[in-house]
């Protein structure tokens, strides 16, 4: 019996889909059987980020309305031998085509076959959010170090806390620019974590590679050298129960001199 994790944020554009794709892929790299579900019906993206768009035959709404069996709609990722599957969202209808109970039933069914079900939630707090959360056991809230994103994260955490079947959510802070954080132009990690008062499960640096990889339909985790990739792998390991220290983000100055400067508090 696997567990279902919903990735949500409230605000749009903070990186829910990227986070879903990468956490899912990272878990698959760790040898887990993973099923990604895109619940952003009408505005699906996860298939594009995963590079599986061309293989979609049936979708979530087809499954729910009984036009096909679950296994027919699941798109297998060939890069991960039988480990990673995607249940894509429909593009032709909207969020109201699915009810939360139907979603819960579907997720419960998938939990029999997979270790992790990663549910990519749409932005907002309406029907789409309700559908996404209905089947989840755990939740990860993604935010960026911006006041507006943190506000919405706070709102969504409040809503998740009301869902009795979901454990207390975990926080991912995405798109961190270490130099801005250092200068105090961005909220820092501690500030966000105390404000939201939930556990931090990972921080991800703002990395151009992420966008490049997404555009190629290849999650960044598959490139082992990028900083963001390591961050997502760490998140996956923490989900698996390992305790991994937080990544040091300011690794630009490597020389001896800068170490001494840092020692004396000179930037």
């Amino acid at each position: 019996m696997g567990e279902a994790i919903v990735i949500t944020s409230g605000k749009g554009g903070v990186g829910k889909t990227t986070t879903s794709a990468n956490i899912g892929t990272a878990l698959a790299l760790q040898g887990k059987r993973v099923c990604l579900i895109d619940t952003d019906i009408g505005l699906r993206n996860l298939d594009v980020v995963m590079g599986l768009e061309n293989r979609i035959i049936y979708d979530l709404v087809d499954v729910i309305q009984g036009r096909c069996k679950i296994h027919q709609a699941l798109v297998k990722d060939k890069r991960f031998d039988d480990k990673l599957y995607l249940l894509p969202a429909a593009q032709t209808t909207d969020k109201n085509a699915v009810e939360p109970e139907q979603m819960k039933k579907l997720v419960d069914e998938l939990k029999q076959d997979y270790d992790y079900i990663i549910i990519d939630c749409p932005a907002g707090i309406e029907q789409g959010y309700k559908n996404a959360v209905a089947g989840a056991d755990k939740a990860i809230v993604v935010t960026t170090p911006e006041v507006s994103a943190v506000r919405d994260a706070d709102r969504i955490i409040g809503l998740i806390e009301k869902e009795e079947h979901v454990e207390s959510p975990k926080l991912v802070i995405n798109r961190i620019r270490s130099h801005m954080m250092k200068n105090g132009d961005m909220l820092d990690v501690d500030e966000i974590t105390t404000h939201l008062s939930i556990d931090l499960i990972g921080i991800v640096a703002d990395d151009d590679e992420v966008i490049r990889a997404s555009n190629h339909g290849e999650p960044i985790v598959m490139n082992p050298n990028s900083k963001a990739s390591i961050a997502y792998r760490n998140i996956a390991r923490r989900i698996l129960g390992e305790s991994v220290p937080l990544q040091q983000l300011d690794t630009q100055d490597k020389g001896m001199f800068s170490k001494i400067k840092r020692f004396f508090g000179v930037r």
Binding site: R151, D154, R155, I157, G158, L159, E161, S197
Partner: peptide, 25 residues
């Protein structure tokens, strides 16, 4: 508890809250 954005707590008498009231709450 934490009163988060969008949440409204209303009591008839006095309120003793152990926790924060976040912006929007």
């Amino acid at each position: 508890r934490v009163i988060r954005s969008g949440q409204v707590i209303e009591v008839e008498g006095d309120l003793l809250l152990i926790g924060d009231v976040n912006p929007g709450g």
